[in-house]
Design a protein around this nucleic acid. Structure first.
Lengths: 399, 399
DNA sequence: GACATTTCCGACAGCGGTGTCAGTAATGAC
DNA sequence: GTCATTACTGACACCGCTGTCGGAAATGTC
């Protein structure tokens, strides 16, 4: 029982009950007493503050401690913490000061229990095998999270062949209570995954989806345009026989990149030869095989544009096998700018995909969206810029 | 009984019931008061129920619903959920049944607020740039987490050169309230990081640390022995001039691998030639350079053992440059079994490091440790097995 | 059958915040 | 000066679960 309660009862006893208001604490005629009570609180608080600073700051400081120290209610502290309005400048400053000197950090569990926010963002992957991509996504997402005081939880949808793939994922989704999730390809186009996320009622942003663009906000880059530029770069170096190693048919970005390649050739009035487009699977080995086929053509290409870096590396290997020196005898360019591209020999000329930035943007969109009504309602898309990376694997064709 | 109740009773006694605001409590007489007090709680509940029904009837099933449905108290439901003892078989079965049919999932925030467990495990990385490694760690860690109903949060310690590296990390650590964290190299040997984790009072397990082994539990594999076997494999193929490409001096596993290499040669009575150990930096290019130096030796080695796959790939490139066919003219082996090894041309013979399994074990150790007194007190280590991976880059030396 | 132990279960007080709503002081309008 | 507003602040219920403790029923003991 607090001093205030006691006082209230006391007043009642001495016959001042009539003055009692609904709350025990407001006594119009006993203003002095309230003041005294308040100031006595102040006295206690300084003491407490000092003790806190002296003693090991056992991270056990709660909002109550701050409120007491500042001589305000916990609600006011809460307001300050959450940057709500309706707090006087002076009060705000005092609270903030105490918060920092006492090193107070709100308890996330309590906060999320009462506010229904977990301060957790999930990133959903299918195969964590696309290591570089996953890593970049995480770096970017983490950046955005940290800025906003969020944390990043990684969640994997097991690939279809695994038992209980989406099942286990959906369950995890339900009790993790994410504030929102970021879907990376290919999960961002997986109907089951989308359904799971939507039934869980979670806001989500997709990265580089390739269909149902109106279904949710998303982030993307213009693969087609980038591929077009990449092709034109070769053209401008003087190449006229430019081959393309395609990616898997069901892979959206592969398709868009192929379109860009085709478009560039069309632009330059080159008749498109089907045999110049070799099937690939986005894997190094498939790039190797494709290159062998291309090099076996009667009119051998002078440049090869692989739809991703890994296949480009395969192309380099094939070139080496055929005794071709890159870029002297053959130019090879890739796409994505993975570490492989930098590590390859020769270092690969490629297109930098702003993966980290896309993830960062996605998380930002999520967090921004929490403010007003759930983001999913409004559809938004954010486009990020690629950039051409000039390294050592492309040069003008042999004279 | 709260101060409020006391006051109310007192007021009632002194006959001032009439003064009481309706909104405060509504009780006609003192006797009725207690009842009203209790039932007022119920009233609130009904209110709440109605609100619930009006508002999106989202599957917000709580422990109360289950308890009501099962005709038991919420505590009993809690016991069943948490597999505590002290519940009759029949009761337990009934509750479990209802839980599953109603699809109840406990609210993580509430749970962690009252139990001080967050069901969150953090994995700490420094450079997410070691993509393959990071990916593998996550896959393994996630496996263990999902099994135990935990979630995996990735946390990055910015490298020393970045502003506020450990600083920002430590703050994140404080409010994320992890139940435990897994430290991956090189964070597992970083004094600042260790200090941050320890002052946060978090249990942690390190993966492949290379000093202060008694400081915490950890998981590791025997790099030295693996490297020894890898070397002996070459020896057994008939190689007698086996060179080694070393890693960075401050890198524990590089050191251990070198030791294994040296040990193997000693075992076979080979005089160790310092020039056969070439400095490398764990990067592709450094493997390339090192190989060039090795190939320039008067007595050219017939096999090269690179301390990691990336350098081995560099070695392959150097071999190609010198017109040497691998493995016919030169054998090259790596270490780690990263995807690069599989993607290289020829596919790299290497040592498989059970990265995912190590992470899985680390998380398991953490979760197991939560049961009894905090794990850090007891020091434990778990060793995992490597395995030799035979691919195409090693063969008997040319006759 | 009386009494001591277990076994099983429930009431209730937190956990540490946020949301709601009511109240006071200060300000503006007339 | 009175009354309506506005700005600021506080009390308290509540979020959904776990921990503690005590009571009732079932069981064991002699």
């Amino acid at each position: 029982m607090s001093a205030l309660d006691l006082a209230a009862i006391f007043l009642a006893l001495v016959g001042l009950v009539g003055w009692l208001n609904v709350r025990f604490f407001h006594f119009p005629t006993a203003t002095a007493m309230v003041l005294v009570l308040k100031s006595s609180l102040h006295a206690i608080d300084f003491d407490r503050c000092r003790r806190m600073q002296r003693d090991p700051p056992t991270g056990k400081i709660t909002i109550v401690d701050i409120a007491r120290a500042a001589g305000v209610s916990i609600k006011t502290v809460s307001r300050v913490i959450n940057q709500e309005e309706g707090v006087g400048d002076e009060t705000r400053a005092r609270v903030l000061e105490i918060v920092t000197t006492m090193g107070y950090r709100p308890n996330v569990s309590a906060r999320s229990l009462s506010s229904r926010r977990s301060y957790l963002i999930g990133v959903i992957f299918m195969r964590v095998g696309a290591y570089h991509y996953v890593g970049e996504v995480q770096v970017g997402a983490m950046r955005a999270c940290r800025r906003a005081g969020y944390h990043l939880v990684v969640e994997q949808v097991l690939p279809p062949e695994a038992v209980g793939g989406v099942q286990g994922f959906a369950e995890g989704l339900r009790d993790a209570r994410f504030d929102g999730v970021v879907l990376t390809p290919p999960t961002c186009d997986d109907p089951e995954v989308l359904a799971a996320v939507e039934t869980a009622g979670l806001p989500y942003v997709r990265i580089a989806p390739h269909r149902e663009f109106e279904r949710s906000p998303y982030v993307f880059m213009d693969d087609r345009k980038a591929a077009r530029e990449q092709t034109l770069r070769l053209w401008n170096m003087g190449h006229r026989r430019i081959a393309f190693i395609d990616g898997p048919a069901d892979h959206g970005s592969a398709t868009r990149r192929r379109q860009g390649y085709i478009e560039a050739l069309r632009d330059r009035g080159v008749e498109l030869r089907p045999e110049w487009i070799a099937k690939g699977e986005f894997l190094s080995l498939s790039g190797f095989d494709a290159t062998e086929r291309l090099l076996a053509l009667p009119e051998r290409p002078t440049a090869i544009f692989a739809a991703n870096d890994e296949m480009a590396v395969g192309a380099l290997a094939a070139a080496a096998k055929h005794g071709l020196s890159v870029p002297r005898d053959l130019s090879v360019v890739g796409f994505d700018d993975t570490p492989t591209a930098e590590a390859a020999w020769p270092r690969l000329t490629t297109v930098h995909q702003p993966t980290a930035e896309m993830a960062e943007a996605a998380v930002e969109m999520l967090i921004d969206g929490f403010g007003d009504e759930r983001l999913r309602a409004r559809v938004a898309a954010r486009q990020l810029d690629y950039s051409l990376v000039q390294r050592d694997s492309a040069a003008p064709p042999p004279a």
